[in-house]
Amino acid sequence: MLRSLKLEPEKCTGCLQCEMACSYEQEGVFNPAKSRIKVFTFHHEGVFAPYTCTQCDEAWCMHACPVDAIVINAATGSKDVLNDVCVGCKVCTIACPFGTVNYNQDTGKVIKCDLCGGDPACARACPTEAITYVDADQTGLERMRAYAAQSAQISPGS
């Protein structure tokens, strides 16, 4: 079963534990600036929203890469960057419509979410379950349930 990261802004408190977990897993230091997942604060609305790569099937980044440095991980479905192949041309950062592939000036390569090989550190670190790693076919299940409850006039928590 493939899994996807499910992001729920309404549960996020903006603590950045996910960004630290990501950078620690990937870089060995606590460094939000190098995190593959980012939390955005919409101050006037009082909203915190985590965002990262959705692992598109026909990934723009992968198709745009001129040296085939972005490949599919068969086990997780993630699109992974092969560091020793990447030439740092940044074409993938232009191609990605969501902005989730970014250049790392310290290494001269691009970085993006690789689902930590199937056990994403961000989901493990999130204290409020705003980030979970769930069945890729069922990311809408809870939202459907909430609306189903509404149509049946049941309070969502029950």
Partner: peptide, 11 residues
């Protein structure tokens, strides 16, 4: 909403 400072799991 409630909000967290950096790294805070209490919020």
């Amino acid at each position: 909403t409630n909000a967290a400072c950096f790294a805070c799991t209490i919020a």
